[in-house]
Design a protein around this nucleic acid. Structure first.
Length: 262
DNA sequence: ATGCCGGGCGAAGCCCGA
């Protein structure tokens, strides 16, 4: 079971790249972020033609998340619980009905939080606290769960090309990293770091200043696994190929492979 | 040097992202 997460930076602008990636990388489940369109305008037909079903949460111009799956999606949750006034489209969750290999997945677009001296940063921290609470409640099910997405969190200095330069950024501040660790400490495993010790592996490179060509990047897209999913973790990696294409997103996919259950 | 790209919106220039 291959599960991938990718911040596509507009589903419309990226559709050709996404369709090519679905063919070549062939994830069973794809968690997309920053689709930037309302659900009615999501290109379902083109994606369904490639054998995927879609769960979509959208809004005009900003944010937007989706789950694409080769298996039926059930029990879709279209918002992160904890604040009914929050109308930003940043969370969608579903049960993937793959029989004995079934699992719960979420596609997460965590707020950026910059600039830190505005209301954006407390919104980010509050959103992380809501995610922690929901992630905690999900564990009670003892299901295999993959919470994947653009977390806008650099977990550690080895995950950014210039740690000193990013020290006070909303993606790397100690408060941000602390909240991220609190989620991990519930019992979730960050899949990439569980299998890779090397530094300098990134999932985002700015469009500007030739950041990709000079490998000045950030690792901010993550797959968090419940114990029942982590026990089946076979492989996890970052696929840099889509970032090198024409009309690329500034993020590139991160994927993991889960073994069949015993 | 936080906007040098890139996308949305909407038809020029501003908002937003990380």
């Amino acid at each position: 079971m291959k599960i991938a997460t990718w911040n596509v930076n507009s589903i419309k602008a990226r559709l050709a790249n996404i369709l090519e990636w679905l063919e070549t990388a062939a994830p069973d489940v794809a968690l997309l972020q920053e689709t930037k369109t309302v659900a009615e305008n999501f290109p379902r037909l083109e994606i369904e033609e490639r054998g995927y079903t879609c769960a979509v949460v959208g809004q005009k111009s900003y944010n937007g998340v989706a789950i694409l799956s080769k298996y039926p999606l059930e029990d879709v949750v279209e918002a992160l619980p904890g604040d009914s006034d929050d109308e930003q489209a940043r969370y969608v969750e579903a049960w993937v009905d793959a029989g004995d290999a079934g699992l719960r997945v979420a596609s997460i677009y965590l707020p950026n939080g910059n600039p830190v001296d505005t209301e954006k940063y407390p919104y980010k921290l509050a959103w992380m606290e809501r995610l922690r609470a929901h992630a905690a409640s999900l564990l009670a099910s003892e299901e295999p769960i993959v919470l994947g997405g653009d977390y806008n969190v650099i977990p550690a200095p080895e995950d950014v090309y210039d740690p000193k330069g990013w020290a006070d950024d909303a993606l790397f501040r100690l408060d941000t990293r602390k909240r991220f660790r609190e989620i991990l400490n519930l019992g979730y495993t960050e899949a990439f770091r569980a299998l890779h010790a090397e530094s300098g592996r990134y999932s985002f490179w700015d469009y500007q200043r030739r950041a990709f060509e000079s490998d000045r990047g950030l690792r901010i897209d993550h797959l968090l696994l419940s114990p029942q999913a982590a026990d089946r973790l076979n492989a996890c990696d970052i696929d840099t190929v889509p970032r090198g294409k024409q009309k690329a997103s500034d993020h590139t996919p991160v994927w993991c492979d889960l073994a069949e259950p015993p």
